[in-house]
Design a protein around this nucleic acid. Structure first.
Lengths: 204, 204
DNA sequence: AAGCTCTTGTTGACGCTGTCAACACCGAAT
DNA sequence: ATTCGGTGTTGACAGCGTCAACAAGAGCTT
């Protein structure tokens, strides 16, 4: 956020719109995000955004895509630091995933809420979410080769893992979980149970 | 739906409103549910619902509560039939859970979408969702006593299990999962992995 | 039977929303 | 200097949730 508002016609609206919309979502929830409010916050009229996004939905999709990118970056960064040799790395990825959701609940909700978005398939959104999955699949494949995770289609394992962390994140965000429980411990237990199941070889 | 529309002032609006709202949600998604449309579908003006619900939110909460009750009933019913002696019963509960979500996606979305509902805590909603959790905790406790599931706080295990099935249901509903994968198999794999993790005793 | 009152449904109005069409403006290319 | 295309503005419209004022049937009291 350094060299903006330079040129006349506001310079680089488009990205400012996404930025401001994301900020407003974090501050006041999706409901507080209105085309008029976004414009006014940028010193611009209500109609201006329509020169850059065909639709309010299109703008929100851009915001969601940005969210997926950030989440993806964060999961990648959870790699660094002492490179633990075991599945501990995978466990930490799960932890970071849930933590991201807790830190940006409204943004996270938007990312997965088809309700507001995606009347038709939004290719950009699909691609951003797909990248997340691909990275996860790759990590799982590595651990399979190390013999730390049972064989079989790594994609299926990835879906199972994704389900576990997304489910936990979602329940936490929607306050379906007793606020008295230790969240950190619950996250740890979830990721451990998940990995325990992935490691096991027998059928249930 | 047999003896309705009898008495004068429409007879039993309130429950008709919930019924119709639920139907409209299933048919056209949450966006299609408008106070005016609900009323008109019942041959009633737009203002009538306000005699029974303070708010559109209040009406939607009632719909969500109804959804939780149905889901709960269904999970209870998954008990019957050959009473499998092992954790197979628990696995089937998870299966039924996901299936419910797939059959009523918009309704399920509403049940967990704090966005639309619950500016403040809605005690009725909390209670209905709480009943779901309590039942799950009870089942887990039984299996713990049978030595089929590792010890520790059954509530924590319940949260983990709930996260897994809710996450899978959510990803499926929001079409985050490749439509080419075999959904039945994925559900089976998820529940198996989960139970494998719960059975395991070591730490990851 | 008459009247009163409470509950329930109706209607007009308000402010808010997303969106479109017509317009205004500036920067750049001719 | 003029033209032109991309960008921002403004007035208008329909639809929404909601409220206040009104109407009308139901049921009780006398």
């Amino acid at each position: 956020m350094a060299e903006r508002d330079r040129a006349y016609h506001h310079g680089d609206l488009r990205s400012s719109l996404v930025e401001v919309a994301a900020a407003m979502i974090s501050e006041g929830g999706t409901a507080s995000v209105t085309m008029r409010a976004i414009g006014s916050r940028l010193g611009v009229s209500r109609g201006a955004p329509y020169r850059h996004f065909s639709d309010k939905t299109a703008l929100l999709v851009a915001v969601a895509v940005e969210g997926f990118k950030r989440l993806n970056r964060r999961l990648g960064a959870s790699d660094t630091g002492a490179s633990p040799s075991s599945v501990e790395k995978l466990r930490r990825m799960g932890e970071q995933y849930v933590r991201f959701a807790l830190e940006h609940p409204a943004h996270y909700r938007l990312m997965y809420g088809k309700e507001a978005l995606a009347r038709q398939d939004q290719p950009e959104l699909r691609e951003a979410a797909g990248a997340l999955l691909e990275n996860l699949v790759e990590v799982i494949r590595v651990h399979q080769q190390r013999g730390e995770i049972e064989g079989g289609d790594p994609r299926a394992h990835a879906y199972v893992a994704w389900s576990a962390v997304h489910g936990l994140a979602s329940l936490l965000i929607e306050k379906q979980i007793d606020p008295n429980v230790d969240v950190d411990e619950l996250i740890r237990q979830t990721t451990r149970t998940l990995l325990g199941g992935l490691r096991d070889r027998g059928q249930a």
